[in-house]
Computed example of a mutant assay.
Amino acid sequence: MPPIPVNDRTPATSHPLFGLRQLEVVWEAETGALWTHMRPNGRPSYNPALLNDFHAWQDGIADWATGREADVRYLVLASRFPGVFSLGGDLNLFAKKIRERDRDALVRYGQSCVRILHRNLHGLGLPLVTVALVQGDALGGGFESLMSFNVIVAERGVKFGLPENLFGLFPGMGAASFLTRSLGAAKAQDMILNGTMHTAEDMYEMGLVHVLAEPGEGERAVRDYISRSRRRHSAHRAVYQAMREVNPVTLAELDAIVEIWADASLRLREQDLKIMERLVGAQDRLRPALLMAAE
């Protein structure tokens, strides 16, 4: 089913929300769903310009939805990059700032990330159900960001992982907070420390993925979920809101962990930074092959 054209009551093209550089936003009035696809410049990671787009996206949604709150029921985030949802943090930037001993820059990057996640966790203050569609691998910060969504739909076989321990670091932008609440402290700590890759099927068994889809059928699975849940939207949203109250993740907690992460980053050795940069090189070499395969 193609995106439904915006009607005269919702002139999407005139709002800055629909003109972001690295986020493609489409409004489907019939389903009440605002679809967003990441299309990052270069590597499929959270570069600073993409983070700025996410802040503008959230502000834009809050502004654009004013007066039509009852119509905007679902917020869906996916990726246009073939085979990848997100590879997470900007490792090139991290290595540069670590060598420069620029702790403030590392903290600013982390705080930018957790503010986006915290606001998403609370549905931007709107009566939304947030849905992440994972059609490719979600690693590091890509995995972390998913856990701020109410519903995760993933295609079978895609990989999830927290590989930061490969270069002596840990995922400092939400993983500890979200995984501890979902899995318990012991299992969360083990997942963070061992860096094991997990399939969507594994994640479904753990309860971290909510809907499994066959390869290539992820978008259909999201649409099926929306169709099934539309009549119960208010109840679902209320349950997600209640669960946040029962076990809240505060911005202060997320910021405190970012500070720990920044300090740990500055303790990395040169050989750790070289491993980080080799990983970036491997990701860069993978990019052309993935793009060619998608053509």
Rank of each mutant, 00 (worst) to 15 (best):
L290T: 06
E201P: 04
G136K: 11
S79T: 04
G123Y: 00
A235V: 10
A12D: 03
G142P: 13
G136V: 05
R267E: 15
R232A: 12
V158H: 02
L51W: 00
S182K: 13
I275C: 12
D104K: 14
N41Y: 10
L128D: 13
Y74P: 04
R285A: 14
V209L: 10
L291K: 12
D63V: 10
R228E: 15
G88Q: 05
G142T: 06
G174A: 06
Q283I: 06
G83F: 02
P163T: 09
I152M: 07
Q58C: 12
E100Y: 00
P171C: 12
H233N: 07
H122F: 11
L290H: 06
R119V: 06
V107K: 04
H210N: 12
M147L: 13
A221F: 11
L91F: 08
H55T: 15
E164P: 01
S227H: 09
K96Y: 02
L162S: 07
C113F: 12
G19R: 14
S86V: 03
R285D: 14
T199G: 07
V158Y: 01
L290I: 03
R80F: 11
F18C: 06
W64D: 05
A62S: 13
H210E: 07
E214N: 07
L146Q: 01
E24N: 12
S182F: 01
T180L: 07
I260F: 08
Q22C: 03
S177A: 10
E214F: 08
I192H: 07
N41M: 03
E69A: 14
L273S: 05
K97W: 15
M197C: 02
D102S: 12
A185K: 13
V107W: 00
G125P: 13
R108I: 01
V129E: 05
Y109C: 04
D63A: 15
A132T: 07
V280R: 06
E201N: 07
H198L: 15
H236E: 13
D272E: 09
M38T: 02
L254D: 01
N150Q: 05
Y109K: 00
K187D: 12
G67L: 14
D190T: 13
T13K: 00
L166Q: 13
S145V: 00
V158D: 01
I260E: 14
H210S: 09
P44C: 10
T66S: 15
G19S: 13
P48Y: 14
T196K: 12
S14K: 08
L133V: 04
N120T: 14
G89W: 00
L128Y: 06
L166F: 00
R220Q: 15
H122A: 01
M147H: 09
F167D: 10
E201W: 08
V239D: 10
H236V: 05
I257L: 13
M197L: 15
Y225W: 15
G172S: 04
A154V: 05
A188K: 03
A95D: 09
F81M: 11
E28Y: 04
R230K: 08
W27C: 06
I226M: 12
S14W: 09
R267S: 15
A29K: 00
M173I: 09
N165C: 10
